[in-house]
């Protein structure tokens, strides 16, 4: 019984080699071939028989050749161009390193050019901003003024601003009040 099944599969193999296997049998056989080394060996021998009959040099085209090709594909991390599959690690990391390098060079160049052209004060101001940005938020506030006090001052200034300019922006008043609420909420969350 098992021998019959094997023979049936081998007959499918023979038809597959000739490109004569019906579609209904094709998919299953290909899946079998992918996981069954013995079946692939049989296919390789059938193929070699044809090669010998056609006077092709089968002494060269053997498993070693196939292994060479497949090893080259694996070792060089070759992916079919435009493949939708996962990028090979080496290629992906090369791309990432390249991008980072390009970004760093661009940033360096922009900063360098900007600093050459800019007035000294502006450069100094930028450096101060950069220094502040590098610090944690808590250390940015002046130690002599408490957060609550500063918040109160800001709130009063905002109220004063809204009262002063409300008549010019009546239609936007709600929005501005909302903005204030959002500002206060953000402070609260901090």
């Amino acid at each position: 019984m098992e021998a019959d099944v094997t023979r049936n599969i081998e007959e499918q193999l023979s038809a597959f080699l000739d490109g004569e296997l019906p579609d209904a049998e094709l998919e299953l056989l290909v899946r079998r071939l992918e996981r069954d080394q013995e079946l692939r060996s049989t296919l390789a021998r059938y193929s070699a028989i044809g090669g010998i009959l056609r006077k092709e040099n089968v002494t060269l085209t053997n498993a070693a050749f196939r292994s060479r090709v497949m090893r080259a594909i694996s070792e060089e991390s070759i992916a079919p161009e435009g493949s939708t599959g996962v990028q090979p690690v080496r290629a992906a990391s090369k791309w990432r390193v390249g991008s980072m390098l390009a970004a760093a060079v661009t940033a360096f160049t922009v900063i360098g050019v900007y600093q050459l052209d800019a007035p000294v004060d502006l450069v100094q101001a930028d450096l101060e901003v950069a220094a502040v940005l590098d610090k944690p938020l808590s250390s940015v506030n002046s130690p002599s003024v408490s957060t609550d006090q500063k918040s109160k001052e800001n709130s009063e200034r905002m109220t004063s601003y809204l009262v002063s300019h409300g008549e010019f922006s009546r239609s936007l008043q709600g929005t501005m009040v909302d903005s204030r609420v959002f500002i206060q909420q953000a402070r609260f969350e901090e």
């Binding site: 290909v30 390789a44 497949m70 992916a79």
Partner: peptide, 19 residues
């Protein structure tokens, strides 16, 4: 991305290509 499938194509045509 199935490399086994390409292996089968190599298996099938290697004799003719080398010849």
């Amino acid at each position: 991305g199935d490399k086994h499938a390409f292996d089968l194509l190599v298996l099938k045509y290697q004799h003719r290509i080398i010849k």
